[in-house]
Nucleic acid binder design. Structure first.
Lengths: 226, 226
DNA sequence: CAATTGGTTATAAATTTTTTATGAATTATA
DNA sequence: TATAATTCATAAAAAATTTATAACCAATTG
């Protein structure tokens, strides 16, 4: 499952919060839907079957708690993770919230990074499904679960960075991944590495997987070809 | 959109910070404007419509927070990304800033490389616009994602400049692109190249794609014909 | 501490890009 | 029309950029 296919339902009565949280999650690549109160949330949840619901506790019409209980009773949403937005210190709501079936809390005021990493953590189990997917390309199989590569009959164990790089390039054979793109995906955009780091990893992959599978597009990046 | 067309508004009351950050971003190729307080920032933002505003939180006359709120209320700047400069550990500012409509934070002390990569990340969504599309013209297909050309059944890999030139001309078949226009688009306004550079690239394209596809309009420029 | 991994650096190699020089084509002009 | 002046085409050389690779170092792991 790609990030884009992960839908998050965001419920809050303050448009400002909706906007900024939605922005941050959308930027991360998730699909985000919004609702402004509990009733609307239940409706939307039924429709879009989100993987995650982020919901304010206090809302007009129907508060988060009540909505949560309702949603928990909908069988097709049993897999959905529900997390509450709550003002820091509102301990009582947490207790009550857990009884209502919430999985986690995010405290206000919201910090973008905390929010995003929390969401990622909560969605990990959904991503795992995707990660378990084996990528098969000709005689090459990338098995994420066991972190190994099958090259024909031969089994290869790659170090993490090499594995990730291969997995990235192989996730879209033919596509040229720009250096910047590779760095963002595998190193993260805060990590600074020298200009030759990618080359070195590519070389190692070429040694192990085969020289001809990795094409250099000079001035642009690299691509994996089948 | 080329980097040069991306304008960043930098707001800080310390001239040292302005200078060093401006230097780093200018070196990267961005156009950088500066302001020294919130009031000036709002003025300038209206004028130059920057894609990104990097603003100190604490400033005289009007602090970053207030300026941020103001800017967020200007419709034509709704797409502008705002990020704060904040001393590490100033958590309180993050909370408040988030509510004021900030998108991200950069913590002081500023590390140039981190700054630059962060800026790149923030601007990514603007750049993404023009990136992913195939141009099809008769038996010629320009595939930007894979950085390759299909000429009938034949696959061609062009060097970057040639690829960009072809993509530019082919983006409007029939239109005559003036030399100046080509230079602006592919080399950028401030890169100075000799008078024969374009010709040479055209010749290479003619060799690879076909002599008759590129028409010379003497005294004006070149056009691509189908 | 030995082995592995992730990363850097220096240098070589490859390729791309630009310039240069010369001739051809076109346009302007006497 | 002949001549001069522009402008472009082309091949080849030169310069600049970008990548490949080996060797090395630091951090981590067991």
């Amino acid at each position: 499952m790609k990030k884009k296919d992960i839908t998050i339902l965001l419920v809050d009565d303050e448009p400002d919060i909706l906007e900024i949280v939605k922005y941050n999650l959308t930027t991360e690549g998730y699909t985000v839907e919004t609702a402004e109160n509990g009733l609307e949330a239940i409706d939307k949840a039924k429709q879009i079957k989100p993987q995650l619901i982020i919901m304010d506790v206090m809302m007009p019409k129907m508060d988060g708690m009540e909505a949560c209980e309702n949603i928990r009773n909908i069988p097709e949403l049993s897999e959905t993770v529900i997390t509450f937005l709550t003002a820091r210190g509102e301990d009582y709501s947490q207790m009550a919230g857990f009884e209502a079936g919430a999985d986690d809390y995010i405290t206000k005021p919201i910090k973008p990074k905390v929010l995003v990493s929390k969401v990622k953590a909560l969605l990990r189990r959904f991503k795992k499904e995707a990660e378990n997917d084996k990528i098969k390309l000709g005689n090459l199989t990338i098995n994420r679960e066991e972190y190994k590569i099958m090259l024909g009959k031969k089994e290869l164990i790659l170090p993490r960075k090499e594995f990730e790089l291969l997995a990235l390039l192989a996730s879209k054979p033919g596509k040229v991944f720009k250096r910047e793109e590779i760095l963002d995906n595998i190193w993260g955009n805060d990590v600074i590495v020298g200009g030759r780091t990618i080359d070195v990893h590519i070389r190692k992959l070429r040694e192990k997987i085969g020289d001809d599978r990795f094409k250099t597009v000079k001035g642009v990046g690299y691509k994996f070809v089948v």
